[in-house]
Write a protein that binds this DNA or RNA. Structure first.
Length: 119
DNA sequence: AATGAGGCAAAAC
DNA sequence: CGTTTTGCCTCAT
C-alpha cells in the first residue's frame, strides 16, 4: 500500500532526525529486532537505512539505546562476530532469548513486526 | 525451503 | 562535491 512517507519534513534539522531515530530505536521492545530500513522508515527518514547504520556507529559506548536490536533486513546480522560490536550484538540478542542461527534470527518470531498471529 | 555471496542504488554528513 | 554507511535485493547452490 502507501509507502511510509517521511514523518519529518526534509527541512527538519539533522539533529531532529537523529532524535527521531533515537526515539524509535528506544521504542524497540526487548526480545525483538528491526531492520535498518524499517527503523529509518519509522523514524521518518524514508530509505536512509544505511544512514541509520552509520548513526549507530557514531553512538557512544555508553549509549542506552538498544542498537543491538537493529539488524539487517530479513533478520540477518551484518555485524561479523569478529568485531566487538558484532560479538556483543549476538551476546545481547541471545540474552534476550533470541535464537541466532547462521548469523540470522527468525524475524517472523523476533521481528518487531512479527506476524505472530498465533499467539 | 534455506543458505551464501555479490552487485547496485540512495541518503546524509 | 566527495566520502561514507551495521543495506537491500537478486541470483545461484
Amino acid at each position: 500500500m502507501n509507502d511510509h512517507a517521511p514523518l519529518l519534513p526534509p527541512s527538519a534539522d539533522a539533529e531532529t532526525r537523529r532524535a527521531a531515530v533515537y526515539l524509535v530505536m528506544s521504542q524497540i521492545p526487548p526480545g525483538k529486532v528491526v531492520s535498518y530500513g524499517e527503523l529509518a522508515a519509522m523514524a521518518g527518514l524514508g530509505r536512509a537505512a544505511r544512514w541509520v547504520g552509520r548513526l549507530m556507529s557514531q553512538l557512544p559506548d555508553d549509549t542506552t539505546l538498544p542498537w543491538h536490536r537493529v539488524i539487517a533486513a530479513g533478520g540477518r546480522l551484518s555485524l561479523p562476530a569478529g568485531t566487538a560490536a558484532g560479538h556483543e550484538q549476538r551476546v545481547r540478542l541471545r540474552a534476550e532469548g533470541l535464537t541466532i542461527v547462521n548469523d540470522r534470527v527468525d524475524m517472523r518470531r523476533h521481528g518487531w513486526h512479527s506476524t505472530e498471529h498465533s499467539g
